[in-house]
Amino acid sequence: MNDLKQKIEMAFDSIDINIPEDNRMIINISKDGVISILSYLKNAGYEHLALISCVDLINENEFELVYIVSAYMKRDDEFHDREKQNIIIKTRISRKKTRFMTVINIFENAEPYEREIYELFGINFQGHPRLKPLFLEIEYEMPPFRKNFDTRKFVDDMFGNIPEIEGH
């Protein structure tokens, strides 16, 4: 793990890496470096994009995008150290300008994750081939997973005034 840390620190500047526990590495990077670090890790053998997630940090007025990559098991009879490791890449984007670039060119399975984040957080992934709703049936004024989406008020407006059926 430490070898990898050194290698990454050699290759990239303005990067913050810490290793909170064994086999887990957290990389904080500015939003311009995401593509390059993902392709660097893919070339280093971490070929599996496990997840893309998003956190709405409303107090800091930023979204945090989280990419988790890991390595596939290559051989049945012996472990490579790499195969136990998870690498978490975090980046921040502004809440005002909700635009980011897609990583489909590197990891093809990013497509549904990016669609989901587009739908629930409203982040527009530039270059995504079909950025349209995935789960939700109806359109919302504001993407429903944002912290300033008032769920109670929405539920009251939407479902609160549906009348009971009278008569039988």
């Binding site: 049936e137 109806i138 939407m158 479902f159 549906i162 059926i165 009278e166 008569g167 039988h168």
Partner: peptide, 19 residues
């Protein structure tokens, strides 16, 4: 039978949430 008799109300409710 209730569905048949009150279909207007049911349909209105369905359209209210689903468009």
């Amino acid at each position: 039978k209730k569905y048949r008799n009150n279909y207007d109300q049911y349909r209105a409710n369905q359209e209210k949430v689903l468009g």
